[in-house]
Amino acid sequence: MSSDLISGDGRVHVKSGLMRESLVSKALNEATEGGPIRRMVPDVNFIAIGGQSIMDRGAEAVLPLVDTIVSLRKHHKFIIGVGGGARVRHTYAIGMDLGLPIGGLARVMGAIEEQNRDILVFLLAPHGGITFIKDHLQDLPMWLDGGMIPVCIGQPPYHFFEPPPLNGRLPENGTDVGLFLMAELIGAKRIVYVKDVDGLYTADPDVDHQAHLIPNITAQELIDRNLPDLPFDRELLRCVERSRLLGGFHLVNGLKSESLQQVFDGKKTGSVVRASAERNFS
């Protein structure tokens, strides 16, 4: 690419395909849609561990899951992400009562996920567990090739800059969203959300006996159904629809130790939520 300097309108431009553009034009953005996207850290699997659904249950739920991850690590590379749970909800309740703005709630929430990350690193350390903070994202290849298991928080680092949410009154870019974005960025093989439900249901199975498991559905269908409750962040569905590399996610029950194993054995378990349209050009 030429690095010619162009002037004449009072500004000095570096010559490029985007020269003089506001980058706001719809037509220009459409023109950047095509072309292959390279995978930065391929062949890695993201495991997203629920805060309320898994971590808050303590040893009973966490230790068997850790054992499963350690055993699977012999054949698969992992990055582990974790959510907050009960203490995040308490933080939000107090923070909202104090009138913290949305960016303030987002900024204070991450501390809880860091606690849970440190707990998982403690448990996984004998097997290569290592703290993975955002500034070390580019170190991932080294850790993974060294047999380590990087453990990170889920929340994306939007912090004070968390945008006002489309629905609800809490930061919409939570754990599930942040981990999906990271997996999409590095072109991971898959992301599996490990929670305390067998998958996605048409209604709450504890309340409605007609409720049944949805084994496979598109994110767009779920957005259209607008179910009153979901076992993951609503914004995650919009991220799935925009995905170029990952294309979807798995949701499995971490309280049943075999479910995670089944995903990696290629057996059907839990639910799969995928993008409605193929946006992968690579």
Binding site: N29, E30, P157, Y158, H159, F161, G178, L181, R242
Partner: peptide, 15 residues
């Protein structure tokens, strides 16, 4: 904004 690596893929294009 500090989004950096966590910037979402837009609905159209890649910027």
């Amino acid at each position: 904004p500090p989004f950096e690596f966590w910037e979402k893929t837009p609905t159209t294009g890649r910027l």
